[in-house]
Nucleic acid binder design. Structure first.
Lengths: 150, 150
DNA sequence: CGGGGCGCTGATACTGAGGATCAACGTATA
DNA sequence: TATACGTTGATCCTCAGTATCAGCGCCCCG
């Protein structure tokens, strides 16, 4: 597999984020990230593996799992709950880690981080707690699905 | 800081909540709920099973899994992430579903729901989204652990 | 420019959380 | 007391996620 030579923002972002942790922006990682960016929906690791395998039969199963973890770790993807005790993933820009997730069509929408930052600071002050990371995800129906199922 | 420690309401609460769904407040369910209330920490289903089995060797494994799901469903427990892609659980009062979780000692603290309610309403208005349920959990260090690891 | 360290990959086999199933049981209502 | 129905525990199964490891390729340093 050849190394990526494009200079699109996604690539630069990934490269920087990974480099900051002594990791490499490999073709596989870009592949996974771009596939994740392309779907507007949340995807489980096995789903994404099957999806990618259609075009890239060489891609390894373990690699997809590992890569998704790296992406979450690098702040470029977010983990969600799916019914049935399964994790699903969605790409997110480096500044927006929280989402509205439609439980009907699995589409995810990014949330403006400002409101949340102030909430976090309030909680830290109130409880003497040091927040490192938060899952702050809202599940429900998007306007389209809410309308469609009246 | 310690959360409210009112003892008996647990049973009434469970009964009502379950009855509202045509379900029964069985001895097993109370057992699981009380064990969950007793630990101030988050616990995984297998951990809780092992814990309960010491005193109640008859208790079935599947029952613990089922019961934890019922409790979450009834709003009396909350699911969390643990490193290693595992779910952990904590009891919560019917009105407080969101927590601060210490990643060092696994203790969980309830968050006042008022601030969150207004955040939710704002998001609903802003995105035309209908929120049914939210995971709103903050992971980090509690004051004790933050102090201890200087 | 050539070797060596190290991170990454893909294949395989494994682990264990959680679910499905089902006969037996308990409890509430008729 | 009889009956219906939710619940339980035992067993077996599924499959998401992990560990392992040999081979490979990038990058650094001589």
């Amino acid at each position: 597999m050849t190394a990526a030579r494009s200079t699109r923002p996604a690539v630069r972002d990934l490269s920087e984020r990974l480099a900051a942790r002594g990791r490499r922006p490999t073709a596989q990682r870009l592949l996974v990230l771009e596939a994740l960016r392309r779907t507007r929906h949340t995807v489980t690791a096995p789903e994404l593996f099957e999806l990618l395998r259609e075009d890239h039969p060489l891609l390894g199963r373990a690699t997809v799992f590992r890569t998704l973890d790296s992406l979450v770790d690098a702040g470029l993807a977010q983990r969600f709950e799916r019914p049935g005790h399964v994790y699903a993933y969605a790409a997110c820009s480096s500044d927006h880690h929280h989402h509205l997730v439609c439980t009907s069509c699995d589409t995810s929408f990014e949330i403006d981080e400002a409101a949340i930052a102030s909430l976090t600071r309030g909680l830290e002050a109130q409880h003497g707690f040091t927040v490192h990371h938060a899952t702050l995800d809202f599940y429900g129906l998007c306007s389209r699905c809410a309308g469609a199922r009246v």
